[in-house]
């Protein structure tokens, strides 16, 4: 990225001033990069596990899939200690206020994963009691598809959050609410050799 200094061209800065401004600007970038990098690699998830997806979340935390490889193994059940809300499972009408309260209790910066078809869209439960997608009432960053998603898929979702954190970091309050402006591309491209052959 360019290091264009935020000074007007008419203003003649002294050499010392110029250097110190440049240095502090560099330090800012470096600090932001460092903070983002460390945030990204130590996400503390808050598992809001209601249903089947919660079991896959447990399996992701257990030894075979081992979410600790991505630095996100520190599950904290107090929302005030967490920065990543994983909403796993369907959310009933009675649970939605609870989920909203938990989201509001989490301290900034915070990100939300909506895990599974039920949390993202209601899934097979198109009934009177199930909220048809938590994103209607909460800001969601990453949707993880599947019913329930395999642990690999959830790990991909966590990695997507990491890419968001790395690229955007913490947005200031004026930037909030304008959407992410970022499309998460899957890291794995599936190569289909000859799509017409059966």
């Amino acid at each position: 990225m360019g290091l264009a200094l935020p000074v007007s061209p008419t203003y003649q800065a002294s050499k010392e001033e110029y250097l110190s401004t440049k240095l502090s600007y560099l330090m800012d970038i470096l600090r932001e990069k460092t903070v983002n990098w460390s945030r990204k690699n130590s996400l503390w998830p808050m598992p809001f596990a209601t249903a089947c997806c919660g079991i896959e979340l447990m399996a992701t935390g257990a030894s075979r899939y081992d979410i600790a490889r991505f630095g996100a193994e520190v599950m904290r059940f107090s929302p005030r200690q967490c920065d990543l809300l994983i909403c796993a499972g369907r959310v009933a009408i009675k649970t939605m206020p609870v989920l909203q309260r938990i989201y509001m209790q989490m301290s900034e910066p915070k990100w939300v994963i909506s895990m599974g078809a039920c949390a993202s869209s209601g899934g097979v439960f198109d009934t009177y009691a199930v909220v048809q997608g938590v994103d209607q009432f909460l800001p969601v960053d990453v949707y993880v598809p599947g019913c329930p998603p395999r642990p690999e898929t959830l790990l991909e979702g966590v990695m997507a959050i990491q890419r968001i954190v790395e690229k955007e970091g913490v947005r200031s309050s004026t930037e909030r609410g304008r959407g992410m402006g970022l499309v998460i591309q899957p890291t794995i491209q599936v190569q289909v050799e000859n799509p017409t052959a059966n």
Partner: peptide, 30 residues
């Protein structure tokens, strides 16, 4: 209780005998 009430029994009146098995998976998901 009732924080995960999702209308399984109501749903059963609208799905046929083979389709409802998908919903039973989600009943005791362990």
């Amino acid at each position: 209780i009732g924080y995960l009430h999702s209308g399984f029994e109501k749903l059963g009146e609208h799905l046929n005998y083979n389709q409802y098995v998908v919903v039973t998976d989600r009943m005791n998901y362990v």
